[in-house]
Nucleic acid binder design. Structure first.
Lengths: 376, 376
DNA sequence: ATCGACCGGTCGC
DNA sequence: TGCGACCGGTCGA
């Protein structure tokens, strides 16, 4: 990611060091660095900060003035370092972002740079005037509207997540934030709001509504109506499902659990979910099932893994649902998640959804759950 | 954190921009940046990367050569940017590291820069030739040996954690890693090894041993001997406690749960812990109880919070232990954790320990648990 | 010096 | 491109 002209310039540092009569080891010791850093910098494989560059030059009896004395950029465009950038390749868009030690490239099929810039503009514009949640919700919904053919989980995990982690997409007043940590907080919360916004117009036609009560009293009241009290209940409840009965009265009939990814956190919601299901309430999981190994060419394969009955061993995350039924159903918005095959028996099923049409297996699940509840 | 001479240089960018006839808004729009960045850079409050600086200069018809043409550093030392640095203030050492948007300063009482450099040298030297776990274990144990009077949790959370997250303390061959994420993995695992190394010499004198079995079969065998089978048992078991009986045979008699901090992850181990205690096995928690709010002057107050019976509300983490007994005892190595007051009744007690002497409440707890088990 | 849950790169197995 | 658990800055309530 070092500009090619700067790379050539950094390669001159080797001669400067030798002229100063210093070995790489000696420089690293003087600067209190681990082994190999001077070689890496001299090879132009990493871009030192101005402070680090100046400290190295000072050891060699040089300074920034001397170092850049006869330097000029050539033909390659000089661009601002971004956490996320994109290029067009034929009819496709390729996203570029750092993924651990790799420079990752992810192809978004049939997409243009103009569309990319429009989607990111939503993020930047809303971040400039509103809160992070609003910005993430609007940017993601714009992305799935712009590219309905693309895996929503890829748009979430590769595009919105990394755009959010780009310093320069935020107003400078929030400079210095740890955007990776901020994403975990703001992204996770935004995802709940995304599902609420996406499904409510459809659900409302059937007397069902998803709510994220903000007042803690309101949330506690609704959970209390479902017989849920005690510690950990309010905090673990993401989204409350509400249904309107024949008399026009609204009643809570379940909790929707939302997770961007699983890791070991999958069982966090299990105790609450078990209590809900034991009382006949709805308790589904919505997940982006995001997970890719670090790679220059990452594949968002998710964590639910191979289906039961196949050759590969079944992941414990899949068993949690299909065998142990810790949720009454799971809906993945990752096109790479294998749904529970139709015709097989399972204690609870994994479905695959997207954002093309809110009349889908999730909304039908919730409407059915409410109708079943009224039948009781 | 911008060098004062560079700060003055960056302040010249305002005149260059005005000479080019551009407003800040126009530059931000051309560079696709959120609002305020150009002002922040022009005020010298943030150090742009060489690529970003070059891109800005290119807009103004200038380049790096011209920008540094008459620049010289003055009297302030030019130093490499480090994630963690330290200065002496009287008899104390002050650590400096970024904490979100803050530049944090933490005082280590009665400590010198020489001691700091010696402790960090252990980390760098071991990282250069061995794995991260070994390096963290040896660095932390060197730190508590060097400064036995200092809060161990502070040394863990403010010193070792941030030293580990400094790129230049690692060999360059691992450049590009996300050290914050790496710390979570390697630090958490190292903490288990630290407790094993610290306590085993003392425990061995009483026929007790802590083990971290590496072969999955071995771990599963030991857990099986305690009647524990099924999914999630092997993965959730950190450290196994073993006791030698009168016939010289070794038997597992508990699992030691280790957590650097709590967050919402505190209940992860609860189901396994409940099964252990129901069978009369030991199931204590060891924790650094690390937590500080973001601040220029962070205080590692932990998460266990106020004691029961006090004026302040009791944290749910404290209730988990003192009321709900999700572990048979908890041992915090944060000097700021309030232990369960002696004389009060609690379903399980919170103790405060340090690394000064392994003959402490934790080792005595384990020895007593093994003796009780043999009495059965 | 509030409290609580959000999540993903890492790395041993 | 296997699987699984590690943890802490963030930020609304």
């Amino acid at each position: 990611m070092v500009h090619p002209d700067l790379k050539i310039l950094f390669q001159r540092l080797e001669a400067s060091r030798e002229a100063a009569g210093l070995t790489r080891d000696e420089v690293e010791e003087k600067l209190v660095m681990g082994p190999g850093w001077i070689k890496l910098i001299e090879e132009g494989l990493t871009e030192p900060s101005l402070g680090t560059l100046a400290a190295i030059l000072a050891l060699y009896g040089d300074d920034l003035h001397g170092f850049f004395a006869d330097f000029q950029f050539g033909e390659t465009d000089v661009i601002v370092d971004r956490h996320l950038s994109a290029t067009e390749e034929g009819a496709d868009l390729v996203l570029h972002f750092p993924m651990g030690p790799h420079s990752a490239n992810v192809t978004i099929p049939d997409a243009t740079l103009d569309e990319f810039n429009s989607v990111l503009l939503v993020l930047r514009n809303v971040l400039a005037v509103r809160d992070a949640r609003r910005a993430i919700v609007e940017c993601f919904l714009e992305a799935v509207r712009t590219w309905p053919h693309v895996n929503p989980s890829d748009l979430w995990y590769f595009l919105v997540a990394h755009a959010y982690q780009d310093d320069f997409n935020h107003p400078a007043e929030s400079a210095g934030k740890d955007w990776a940590q901020s994403w975990k907080r703001a992204g996770g919360w935004s995802l709940e709001a995304i599902f609420v916004e996406h499904y409510n117009p459809q659900l409302n036609q059937h007397g069902v509504r998803l709510a994220m009560p903000t007042a803690p009293d309101e949330k506690g009241r609704l959970l209390g109506e479902m017989g849920l009290h005690g510690s950990g209940v309010v905090e673990k409840s993401d989204v409350i499902a509400l249904g309107t009965d024949a008399h026009g009265n609204e009643h809570p009939f379940g909790v929707v659990h939302v997770k961007a990814s699983f890791a070991e956190r999958r069982t966090d919601d299990a105790p609450l979910s078990a209590r809900l299901m034991a009382s006949g309430f709805a308790s589904p999981l919505l997940t982006m099932d995001c997970k890719a190994g670090p790679s220059t060419d990452p594949f968002n394969k998710g964590e639910l893994g191979a289906v039961q009955g196949g050759i590969a061993r079944v992941s414990s995350k899949r068993l949690d649902i299909e065998r142990d039924r810790i949720f009454d159903a799971a809906f993945s918005y990752n096109a790479n998640t294998e749904p529970t095959p139709t015709g097989t028996s399972a204690a609870a099923r994994i479905y695959r959804c997207n954002f093309a049409d809110p009349d889908d297996s999730f909304s039908r699940h919730m409407i059915r759950k409410w109708q079943e509840r009224q039948g009781n």
